[in-house]
């Protein structure tokens, strides 16, 4: 087949036709991957909730998610019950805009009295090798929050007069982590369910 000439009709037909086929293909791909993407996100969420629950909790039930106001955005809260239906931990997805490379999101689990059970990083763009040490898969830094109650435990880095040891050479990321945790704590104590 000879190559088409660059006449106006040919150009319009060819460009239009290809754009049409491309968008049809995209629509199809979107429909096909919609389910798996939702599933993948759900898996990540459930995994994070599990990470911030007590590790000895064998059987658990996920309660209804509710939203709390916190800063510019609202925070999603996921209550986790044990087998008897008693509230054990509330996993709160929180964020900070104070990060070194903009916003990052973490999940914090609170016992009904506000004690921090555990934390997990959901998404971040902090510097590899420095700020990303807040992620448990990289370093044990965030373990220091576990079992602390922010009522008596000051959620700022020691440099600012708080109780949190900052990550070496990543004070900004550490401050941001505290900011996110504090946002979740304040919101939870103000409006969260405690039983």
């Amino acid at each position: 087949m000879a190559k088409l000439e660059s006449t106006l009709t040919n150009m319009l037909l060819s460009l239009g036709g290809i754009a049409l086929v491309a968008s049809a293909l995209l629509g199809f791909a979107y429909q096909a991957t919609k389910g798996p993407i939702a599933e993948a996100n759900q898996r990540i969420l459930e995994n994070a909730i599990k990470l911030v629950s007590p590790s000895d909790l064998k059987e658990s039930k996920l309660g209804d998610m509710y939203m709390l106001p916190g800063g510019k955005d609202s925070l999603a809260c996921y209550p986790v019950m044990d087998a008897s239906g008693k509230l054990v931990v509330t996993a709160i997805s929180t964020y900070t805009d104070e990060g070194f490379s903009g916003r990052f999101k973490i999940m914090v689990g609170f016992a009904p009295d506000g004690t921090i059970v555990n934390t997990a990083v959901l998404s971040h763009a902090e510097t590899p090798g420095l700020g990303d040490k807040m992620d448990k898969s990289k370093a044990d830094w965030s373990v220091q929050f576990n079992g602390k109650n922010p009522e008596t435990y000051k959620l700022t880095v020691t440099k600012d007069g708080g109780d949190v040891d900052a990550i070496t050479a990543a004070t900004i990321s550490s401050r941001a982590f505290c900011d996110a945790t504090d946002r979740a704590y304040t919101a939870y104590m103000k409006g969260g369910r405690h039983e």
Binding site: S6, I37, A40
Partner: peptide, 30 residues
């Protein structure tokens, strides 16, 4: 052969951008 020379660059960009979008969807899912 069905792409006239004058519109070839826009066509290439449409093709590549669509493929990247498909890749984005697949990676998000799997």
């Amino acid at each position: 052969n069905i792409v006239p020379d004058m519109v070839r660059i826009p066509v290439f960009i449409v093709v590549i951008a669509s493929l990247v979008t498909v890749l984005q969807l697949l990676m998000q899912a799997y």
